[in-house]
Design a protein around this nucleic acid. Sequence first.
DNA 1: GATTGGCACTCGCAAGGCGAGAGTGCTAGA
DNA 2: TCTAGCACTCTCGCCTTGCGAGTGCCAATC
Lengths: 348, 348
Amino acid sequence: MSDHTHDPDSRKFAILIAVVDDYIQTGEPVGSLALLARHDLGVSPATIRNEMAELENLGYLQQPHTSAGRVPSAKGYRLYVDSISEPTGLEDVEARWIREAYDAQRDATTLIQQTARLVSEATSYTAMVLGPRYAKAVFRDLKFLRLPGGRLLMVLTTDVGLLEHRVIDLPDGLTDEDLAEVSRNLNQSLRGLILGKLTRGYVRTLGTGSAAQRWLVGAIFDALGGTGQADADDKVYLGGTANILSQPDFGDLDVVRDLLGFLERDRLVSELLSRPPAGHVQVFIGAENPYQELQSCSLVMAAFGAGERVMGTVGVLGPTRMRYGHVMSVVSYVSGQLTNVLTRQMRR
Amino acid sequence: MSDHTHDPDSRKFAILIAVVDDYIQTGEPVGSLALLARHDLGVSPATIRNEMAELENLGYLQQPHTSAGRVPSAKGYRLYVDSISEPTGLEDVEARWIREAYDAQRDATTLIQQTARLVSEATSYTAMVLGPRYAKAVFRDLKFLRLPGGRLLMVLTTDVGLLEHRVIDLPDGLTDEDLAEVSRNLNQSLRGLILGKLTRGYVRTLGTGSAAQRWLVGAIFDALGGTGQADADDKVYLGGTANILSQPDFGDLDVVRDLLGFLERDRLVSELLSRPPAGHVQVFIGAENPYQELQSCSLVMAAFGAGERVMGTVGVLGPTRMRYGHVMSVVSYVSGQLTNVLTRQMRR
DNA sequence: GATTGGCACTCGCAAGGCGAGAGTGCTAGA
DNA sequence: TCTAGCACTCTCGCCTTGCGAGTGCCAATC
C-alpha cells in the first residue's frame, strides 16, 4: 500500500487539507458529512470515512474520542503548512493598511515598537518583536557628552542610524583631552565592526595613552556589554497579549497562565526569537516548540534586517489551530517592509 | 435603632471585620459557625446571625443566595479598608528583602523599572508603575550632541539626575556657535523650572539670535513636548500580569480579557495612575474605580516623589477580595523607599 | 476493485432528578 | 438581651438517561 498523501493531486491529500481548513475555521472535530457540506469532493461520505481512517493510521489525523470527527495531528498540520509554499494571499486592503502604517512613521525605533501592535491587530493573535539586535549592529560613530554630577553619556550610532546610550560615572582625573583622544581612537578603529564580535582583548589594545585613558576604554567596553551575553539587552516588544484569552482553544487556564508567565520574561522571549528562522518564514507547531510553555501553541516567525544582516525577528504566537496561511503572509510581509525601511536608512 | 458599626469597639464592627478577614482568606461565603470556628467572639452562633442579618440590612454584607454565608459588599470593604488607618504589618523579612533590592541598585531608572516586578512578587497581584513623570520634573541641564547624518541629540538632565533624550533632524544652516549660544541661553533661563509648565510662548522669548537659532528653540520645545499632552510620554511598567489568572475570583474570562486589554493600553494605565492619591495610600474598591474594565477589581496606589514633588505612582491591581492590609503595607513601603532614593539623588 | 448506501454501535454531552450539607430565620425560654 | 432548638431553603455534586453526531463494517453496485 503506497502513501499518496504527499502527492498534491491525490485525493487523500485534498481531504487532509480540507479537514485542516475546516478545523481551523470551525474549531470543531470535522466528520465526513460536515466535510462534504463545505467542500465538493465528488465522492460519498463513506469514501471520505475510509480515507480519513487511513489518514488516521498514517498519523495525520486523530480522534478526540471514538464517535467524534477528526482533528489534525501535529504531523497533519506540518504537512498542511509545508503545502503553503509561498505565503501569498494577503488581501490588498490589508497590505495597503500595513504599508501606510510604515510610510507614516520615519523613526526606525518607533517603527519596530509599533510593529508588535500592528501584527497583533492584523492577526488577532499575540505578536512578539525582537530588535533591533544590538550585538548584530555595526559600529558607525561614538560620541561622549559630559553630564552634570560627574557622569558621562556615551552615544553610539549604528550604521542603520539607531542609537544606543549608556551612562557611566566618571572618576575625577579624566580631562577633556582624554575624552577626545579616546573618542578619536575608537572611532577610527571600530568603524564598520560588528559590535557583538568585539572582544575585551581587542578593545584593550586601543587604550594606549594614560592610565586614565586605559581605564576609560575598559569602562566603555563594560558598559557596551560587548561580550556574548548581549541577549539580556535586546529589546522585546509584545502586542495583543490579551488576544490569548480570546482563543477558545485555550480553555485550560493553567496553560494560559504559563504562557503569559513566559511572555513576561523578556529574557526567554528574546532567546526564543534569537534563533534566526532558517527559511524565510519559519513555523513551529505544538511540540516542535523549544520551550515547554509553548508546546500547546504554534509559533510563526521571520527575521528582518538591513541589507544582508539579520537585525531582529517578528513572531506570532497562537493556538495550534492557527490561521497559518494568513499569519504567514502577514509575518512575511511585515518583515519585508521592516527590512526595506532599515535598508533604506543604512544607505543614507 | 442606632448603628454602632463605625464604633471600633462595638461588636457589630468586630464581626464585620472578622467576616471580611475570613472571606479574604478563604474566598468562601462565611457563615455564623465558620466565623466562630476562627474567631473567639464570646457569643453564640445565633447572636452572630442576628448581627449579621443587621449588617446586611445596613448594606455592609450580602448573601450570594438565601442559604449561604455572607460576603462583604463594596461598602463593607470600604469600612474595612478605612479601619486600616496606618498600614503597619509588613513582615521584617519582607521589608528587608525590599530594602536590599533597592540598596543593590543605584540607577534610578532601572530601579523604577524593577519596582513593578518587585511589587508583583511581593503581593502576588499585578503591579503597575508610572514614572518618572516627565511633566513634573525640574530642569537642570540641557546639552546638545551632533550625530552623524545631520541629526542632533538633546540630552536633558532633571534635578533628580534622570535623563531624557530626543533626536531631531538638523537643517544645514546651523553652526556650532548657534548651538552653543542656544544652549547657554536655555540653561540659564530654564534651570529650576518645571518642565510641564513651560509654555511655547515663554520658551519662544528665549530664541533671540538669528532665524536659525529661533527655529532651533522652537524645534526643541516641540521635541520636548512641553505642552499638556505629556501623558503620552509617561512610561508605564507592568509586573505580574500573569498573576491575574491565578486569582480564583476571576473565573469569568471576559472580565480578565478586558482587564488585560486595559493593561495593554499604556495610555489608559498612565491616565489611571496620574490622579495622585489623595492621602498616602489610596484604595479604589470595585465600582469606585474610574474605568469600566476595572470595576470588578480593587486598586491600591500611592505616589512616590523627590522631596515634595510627586514623580510617579505605584499601584497594585487585584480582586476585590484582596489582601488589603498586606498590599497597602507593601505599596506604602515601596513608595517610601523610592522617594528616599530619588530625594537622595536630588541632593547630590 | 473501488465506491456507495444501509445499519448497528459507540460515546460525549446536556438535562433532569435526587440526597446531603451548610446556613439561615424564627420562636420560645433563660 | 442572649441562647438553644428547629424547620426551612437553596446550592452543589452525583447519577441516570436520552439524544445526536459520527463511526466502522458489510453487502450491493458501477
